[in-house]
Design a protein around this nucleic acid. Structure first.
Lengths: 165, 165
DNA sequence: TTTCCTGCAAAAACTTTGCACTCAC
DNA sequence: GTGAGTGCAAAGTTTTTGCAGGAAA
């Protein structure tokens, strides 16, 4: 399942965001529209700095300030459009939460590669365990750390720096 | 499994640390001894700031500087004596890795309670998934987020601040 | 026209680092 | 004796915030 297909969704991320903002009596501004569009332009994982860079490079007048980007990332999290995946290089790494199926990650400690997978059995077992504690699960995060296929075979290769776009 | 018993270990954490240092040709200093002792004095989860506070309160001359504590935490991680559990309030939270069985967590988003559990089936399934990708797992982290038993029953109670010791 | 929002710069929060002195081996 | 370790203060990073001007509804 490394090639996930987007789940068909009733409304676009921008629309979903607009709906969220409406429920909170907040406004859909030019900046928020630019950000949600940029965030959902690709399915790459990203961190705040990367998003700032992407929006800073734009010469089409669609620049958005650093503060606003930080503020919006939080809001997109609240709106359940994105969520934190992991920490990488002292930064929170985000991914799409809306319009994308639940999945977990295999994280290569050498090259940083993130492989997505999903396993219903694991989710079921987890539910079962939680039930035993009277715990109501709303979501989970499962990351396995180790060496990916490539890095197992070629252990001498030096790690890529993935944080610099 | 909320009441885990410590696994019986051949050597104490301090001894394990000393061995690690020896393999790296590093030295067991007074400060490092104080830190490893304090870290393993209880099984509580902790973050850097909390450890600094604990060591700062001591009037017995066993104070250790902030820098050294940060440096040692990293080293204890490298030595596999402790490991990161999660992030809480923008800080990395650590727990014992040595002398304590592998386990995962149920994290209550309301009161912050951490419940530990272990399930071999889940670990096995994860291994199986990883094998399919040619991925070699060295460790994993599984956290379920939601509401604990108490908070399901009494949803109106206000969350405790757990970060202040 | 009333809030809410943005950008900027400054601040905050956490962590790392340079350096001179000290100490373990 | 010598290289590693420590404490301090200063700097580095990432993220947050106060505020004045600007813009949705």
């Amino acid at each position: 399942m490394s090639e996930l297909e987007a789940v068909s969704v009733a409304v676009s991320p921008s629309e979903k965001y607009r709906e969220y903002l409406a429920t909170q009596r907040l406004r859909m501004t030019r900046e928020r529209a630019i950000i949600v569009e940029e965030v959902f332009a690709t399915h790459e994982h990203f961190d705040a700095e990367q998003l700032i860079q992407r929006l800073n490079l734009r010469q089409d007048g669609k620049r958005v300030s650093r503060s606003t980007i930080y503020r919006s990332i939080k809001q997109l999290e609240d709106a359940r459009l994105i969520r934190k995946v992991a920490r990488q290089d002292d930064r929170d790494l985000y991914e799409h939460d809306y319009g994308y199926p639940q999945h977990d990650h295999l994280i290569c400690k050498k090259c940083g590669e993130l492989t997505e997978f999903d396993n219903d059995k694991i989710s079921e077992l987890l539910e079962e365990v939680a039930r035993g504690f009277g715990f109501r699960i709303e979501g989970h995060r499962l990351e396995a750390h180790g060496l990916c296929d490539k890095c197992c075979r070629r252990p001498r290769e030096r790690p890529k720096k993935l944080n610099l776009i």
